[in-house]
Design a protein around this nucleic acid. Structure first.
Lengths: 190, 190, 190, 190
DNA sequence: AATGAATGAGGTTTCATTCAT
DNA sequence: CATGAATGAAACCTCATTCAT
């Protein structure tokens, strides 16, 4: 693995473990197995790694969506989307949250839209096709709704895994309720 | 105003301005007009102020909900809720986001549920009454749905104000779409 | 117990526990159950308590000597002296050492001679009587030898209790060797 | 001279001058001519330098013993030992005392035995040879007695130089008395 | 005589950043 | 490109000391 990649991976580990505040470049380089000075050949600060981390996360989610959201009724596809986002959130725990904040705290806020665009687009396309197939309400604004859905699902996933620490059973019931909520919201049940 | 209160206010200012990372105790005490050592009589670290800030935010939102969500059809009440949360989010900008992260990064994660409980309860009660009046779907789990709604609305508000920096007109259209989304989700339109 | 006495006792506890370096007035007053400011009505600094502590220690040793060193052959009296000093050293552990250092580090070094004088005198008198009774070498300088004996015994006691942490059995053998050493040194066996 | 060595030398100076209590890392680094942060690359606290200082002291004493204690009657060798320890104690004044205390006050107490071992061994060997040559009492426990002798001599040296501040003439008489004391103690005069 | 909240000087400690190798 | 010892600015944090009550 090349140096840059190793830095990003190490940064993910350290940020997840210590949070942005307590994470130090010293620890990142130690974990990456490179010299202190080498870090600066690739990044200017620990927060400068964030966009790369965000990109990696979005890529993971997209890969998940592409592979796990099957063709079929949109109702079922929503279930798949929820499942994927929950899985990734659980896997990377606090990281999802940190990315938001990490980007916010820097000059990289602007990158946000850019980085998440593919994800929003993917869901928007799915809604668009659903709309054309008259599988959801005709008055749904696909652009806005894509973001609302992703925001809702991520928000609940964070609740469930980061704050409430629910047991597996409760999580399933939560996901079902959320599924019903979103499906109704876009009229996927008619 | 007593010392503790002044620290909290100063911390809000500094966190909002600099973010958690760059905020320093030195600056907080300067803004609060107290001595360096005095800070430590009340808090152990800058992050230890977070639970108090969160509590203040929740109190603000609750006050907003109590005063601005009128009696009337539940559909309209949802509009009011969205309006209140958007207003507070805009007012405190990054702070909402920082609280999440600030609590996550510390030993105070546990406080989260406790602090937000009143807010969740308030919405849950509203849903409960709507259910009893058969104004919303009978199969709605009020506890889960309360959290889903608050999460969704906050998530969209943050999108709108923190990342997308939308113009006023787009925000209104976004709010309308969100309103429709939530109302449909719980079956408030039948 | 009056305030002054309580401060001295608390200081003994804290110094024993934390050492001079880490001991703080804050902790002493907490242990003494008095207010922060009250300390200064009795002492100017934590080290200013040292002479009082030293006096208390010397008093303890003197009481021990007076009560436990019986009339009889000087050889046996030496054994008693060793026993008393070992007992007190064990009881107050590091404190003996700290007193030396505590006094050294301050303006109170001068007090040292004054405070220890009674102890030296007591042993000197014992040697003097031994000399007159021709129970020890006639060329012993009682003044110097008194100090040498006390120094040796304290030194060994500290070795045994503070550094080597010997078991009870080894300590007894050590004491016996020391006893023989001192008795021979002053010619108490002829 | 390498950084570590410079820190140790500077620490010796500052400790000797100010005592443990008043010595600061800031002053040590200033005297060593290095940056504040550099200190922490080698030691964690000012007391962490103590074991190194102790080692240096022991080395000095050993060098003194090796070079100044001549072959010859054991009686005379004892005189040499006393002379060396007095000289070093005078040269380093308070430092000898501080080492004891410095080590006591920290996690490094354990190091004590280890550091002093060579010194004890050296004297023990000398006694052993004296015993084999029947120059001293046959019932002397060389291990214990080595420690007793070193302890006694150091104790008296500290008395003389640190507390009593005796004049040169009195010191010579004190040394003579001590010499006689130790020689008699082990039966070196027969 | 006693209190204890508040102070702020002055220490400690960290860690991003540099630069000679 | 890569290194990592050294730096020192800038934060942290403690705690003796004060003083109004």
């Amino acid at each position: 693995m090349d140096k840059r990649e190793r830095i990003i991976q190490a940064a993910i580990d350290v940020f997840s473990d210590k949070g942005i505040e307590k994470a130090t470049i010293s620890e990142i380089v130690k974990k990456a197995g490179i010299a202190q000075g080498t870090f600066y050949l690739y990044f200017n600060s620990k927060l400068a790694v964030m966009p790369d981390i965000a990109e990696l996360m979005v890529r993971k989610i997209l890969e998940g969506l592409t592979s796990e959201v099957k063709d079929g009724p949109i109702d079922q596809q929503i279930g798949d989307i929820i499942h994927v986002i929950f899985k990734i959130t659980n896997e990377y725990k606090v990281l999802t949250k940190l990315i938001y904040t990490g980007l916010t705290q820097t000059q990289y806020v602007g990158s946000w839209e850019e980085i998440y665009a593919p994800l929003y687009n993917w869901v928007e396309n799915l809604l668009q096709r659903g709309k054309e197939a008259q599988a959801i309400n005709s008055d749904v604004n696909t652009k806005f709704t894509a973001k609302i859905i992703i925001g809702s699902v991520e928000s609940v996933a964070e609740q469930v895994y980061l704050y409430d620490h629910l047991d597996e059973d409760s999580i399933i019931r939560y996901k079902n309720e959320l599924h019903k909520f979103v499906a109704n919201a876009i009229g996927a049940y008619r």
